[in-house]
Design a protein around this nucleic acid. Structure first.
Length: 475
RNA sequence: GGUCCCGUCGUCCAGAGGCCCAGGACGCCGGCCUUUCAAGCCGGAAACGCCGGUUCGAAUCCGGUCGGGACUGCCA
């Protein structure tokens, strides 16, 4: 039987990191098994669902490289991957279950139900002990599934192993609301059955709902899917990954210039590993090795630091051309305008040096604004640390006059000139060159100095030295 | 409260009875390199929650305990 898995996001928000990770594992499993990966839109919450969120989710999945299979023939009628298109089907199933006696209409009031829950609570019992078919029959109201009390609901979870629930601890849950709309349990299970989903890999938060889904599937006369409940993701504060923590929506990472491959790699490491040693690996390697049964059952903490490191690894691994292509918008955004090709060449000459020291694409832009924008303000800390020392003005003056004589303005030529200078002046390279760095780039942290000067051009370089000199007390 | 899940370095993972006085990665600390910052290289600190049991032998199996989490809606 070919493997069919699905991811069922609700378009009530951006694609959450946790959902993305679940999608990733489903995708890996489908590709590993040569199966089918379906994206289903769980938009039964009409109030909160929006087309914008749906678009964001799909875009993010595409960006991550999780291509899904479309046009897959589905088993049931009303074939659609959108739950709001299938209300009739859900009603049909609920009605059928009532006819067969597996479900029943319940017209008890919220107050009555609340009372039953309170009673269970006070007696230390599960609400399932009391939320059962009422004596009086009804033809209206919500429809509840009648839980068979004959045997425990046991299943083999690919991640958790053997899991079992007592029927007493499962209440007769609502499958169709009194307004005729399906609950999540009904819609999700009917879809899984109709689409012939073979494996359901989802967050561990749904583990307690699983017996309900199994019972529902069985009531429909179907065989339930194999389940795999993935460990939940937490923030570095140990709490559930929430909006307060870093970025929880995947589109943020895309917009901030993270590489999809890096995010993919990092996410796949949350609850899984390729082997004991390998940290960096490709999609293909992951696909070849992945198995749901090898997913860890421990919750995982999402660590932005490690993602950042990994992003740096992937940026350094980029081909020079690809780096140039990806970084351009970020450089232009840092400079505040678009750059013409003559200017862009200046950047290209030091791109390799920038690439090495970039963890995020926007960082690269910040590193090189000095190439394109004259500045009046120097980095305050840098200035205080470097430019207030003894003999700074003398050093800059000397450098300026020596550099004026350089005609062949290349890093390889500039370097010996300045090195010769610090040597003749009897000062260390650090002491002699840092003032020049601050004068030319505005900061004591920058790409390598000689190459930066070369990229800037002779005229600009001398101008900047001059300008810095103007801000210094005369020697 | 109840049901269920989880418990190896700060964090992510490896470990499925002897290969483990526990391995890899991020982070951290120290060093080398070095014009700054990175990168790179070398080295270091850092964990089997606790108590019993099974066994010649336990991180690995069992029980208990403690701790954490999820769920407990006519939300998903």
């Amino acid at each position: 039987m070919t493997v069919r898995v699905r991811i069922a996001p609700s378009p009530t928000g951006y694609l959450h990191v946790g959902t993305a990770r679940a999608a990733l594992f489903n995708w890996l499993y489908a590709r590993h098994k040569g199966g089918v990966f379906i994206v289903r839109i769980d938009d039964t919450d009409r109030e909160r669902s929006t087309p914008q969120f749906e678009a964001d989710i799909l875009d993010s999945l595409r960006w991550l490289g999780l291509d899904w299979d479309e046009g897959v023939e589905v088993g049931g009628p009303h074939g659609s991957y959108r739950q709001s298109d299938r209300y009739e089907r859900y009603r049909e199933v609920a009605g059928q279950l009532v006819t067969e006696g597996a479900a029943y209409y319940d017209n008890r009031s919220p107050e009555e139900l609340e009372e039953l829950r309170a009673r269970a609570q006070s007696e230390g019992k599960h609400p399932g002990h009391y939320i059962r078919r009422a004596d009086r029959a009804a033809e209206t109201g919500a429809i509840r599934l009648s839980i068979p009390q004959d045997a425990p609901v046991a299943f083999d979870d690919l991640v958790r192993g053997a899991v079992s629930f007592e029927p007493r601890d499962i209440d007769d849950f609502v499958i169709l609301r009194s307004d005729g709309t399906p609950t999540y349990h009904l819609a999700s299970t009917v879809d899984d059955v109709d689409y012939e989903i073979t494996h359901v890999a989802r967050g561990e938060d749904l583990l307690p709902s699983t017996p309900k889904h199994i019972l529902l599937a069985r009531a429909m006369g179907a065989t339930e899917a194999t389940y795999a409940h993935l460990p939940l993701l937490f923030g570095t504060d140990g709490k559930k990954l929430s909006k307060r923590f870093a970025a929880v929506s995947l589109s943020v990472y895309r917009d901030e210039g993270y590489l999809a491959d890096a995010v993919f790699n990092y996410l796949s490491l949350l609850g899984w590993s390729l082997d004991a040693e390998t940290t960096i690996f490709s999609r293909a390697e992951a696909v070849a090795a992945f198995d749901l049964g090898e997913v860890s059952s421990n919750p995982a903490v999402f660590d932005p630091e490690k993602l950042a490191w990994m992003n740096g690894e992937y940026i350094r691994a980029l081909s020079p051309d690809r780096f140039l292509e990806l970084v351009r918008p970020h450089v232009e955004s840092a400079v505040g305008r678009s750059l013409d090709s003559a200017e862009w060449i200046r950047f290209e000459s030091i791109a390799g040096l920038v690439q090495e020291r970039t963890r995020f694409l926007p960082e690269a832009g910040e590193q090189v604004v000095f190439l394109f924008a004259d500045f009046d303000e120097y980095d305050e800390t840098s200035w205080g640390k470097v430019m207030t020392g003894e003999g700074v003005a003398g050093i800059i003056t000397e450098a300026r006059s020596r550099l004026e004589t350089v005609d062949d303005w290349r890093a390889e030529v500039i370097e010996p000139v300045l090195r010769g200078m610090v040597e003749e002046m009897g000062i260390g390279a650090a002491k002699g060159l840092q003032p020049l760095r601050v004068a030319v780039t505005g900061s004591s942290v920058s790409p390598p100095l000689f190459e930066s000067m070369a990229a800037l051009g002779k005229e600009k370089t001398l101008e900047r030295l001059e300008r810095a000199l103007g801000r210094l007390p005369s020697p």
